[in-house]
Design a protein around this nucleic acid. Sequence first.
DNA 1: ATGCATTCAATGCACAAGCAATTAATGCGT
DNA 2: ACGCATTAATTGCTTGTGCATTGAATGCAT
Lengths: 152, 152
Amino acid sequence: MNDTDTGFVVMAWRELLARHAEVSCALERELSDKHGLGVSEFEVLERLVEGQSLCTEPDTVKFRVQELAGQVHLSQSALSRLIARLEREGLVARALCEADRRGVFVHVTEEGRRRHAEATPTHRAVLSAHLFPHLVNAGYAPPVSDEASRPA
Amino acid sequence: MNDTDTGFVVMAWRELLARHAEVSCALERELSDKHGLGVSEFEVLERLVEGQSLCTEPDTVKFRVQELAGQVHLSQSALSRLIARLEREGLVARALCEADRRGVFVHVTEEGRRRHAEATPTHRAVLSAHLFPHLVNAGYAPPVSDEASRPA
DNA sequence: ATGCATTCAATGCACAAGCAATTAATGCGT
DNA sequence: ACGCATTAATTGCTTGTGCATTGAATGCAT
């Protein structure tokens, strides 16, 4: 592990930081402004909708809080409160798990599915514009207000 | 922009999120535990040291708060408080800029340089281990406690 | 059956971050 | 020279997050 390698690793890390900051910041603004959803909120909603879509019965596939926490890279406590926020807005619901009554099952509501569906185009557009700008500029660009890159 | 493209973009985004979470979380733990520094604090310190090393005179190269904010992807208010924290610990110092007395110049102190030098091996080791594990396992692995990947 | 360690989710607490408002200094136009 | 918009940095406030703790439920050993 010599000095050249080290410099390379640091460059890669800074690149990763820059990309993450740019995209997540833009996403945060767009999702928040247009749909009243934070990035993490959207991400959780998406996992729930994805899980749901795997099943024919509505409100059948449910997630434990911990599963979701791992998927969206949040602590269990953060997820607990995030679920509470989504529940307050009526986008998800908690259900007792009678098999293991410590656990709580979370599932998306109709309203939640609707909000997610509304926000998805925005989400995809921001992602495309910021992760693959060359593809977006190649003709079929979804309209995305730019200048929403930096925190301040 | 068809459905396959969309799925690809989302996959790329999740990949980016996962990598960022893994590395920054591990970094946070290691730097905090071993050196009492947060990731952002280290990052700022590093920019200051880098800038300083470009100049022969010590305490000559100085940065405005805003420049640093851009480099580490933080808002200027966040940077202002971060600088305040580092200053409280004696790692950096503020200096009035007599050319434009609105501006504040920030420079690293001896102590700050020392702390940065101490923390750098840890920083590099975590980066190598998590960004390029295949290279690290190829022989010259710096010692990095693993299990420090997830927030909770 | 009882006790004890373990696990799941929720909560108290501390802290970092962003936004908006504030203060101070600058520059520009008239 | 005087106002007025602009820019730099700080500060009040709110919010989201992680860690540690708590409370409840489970499983296991004795």
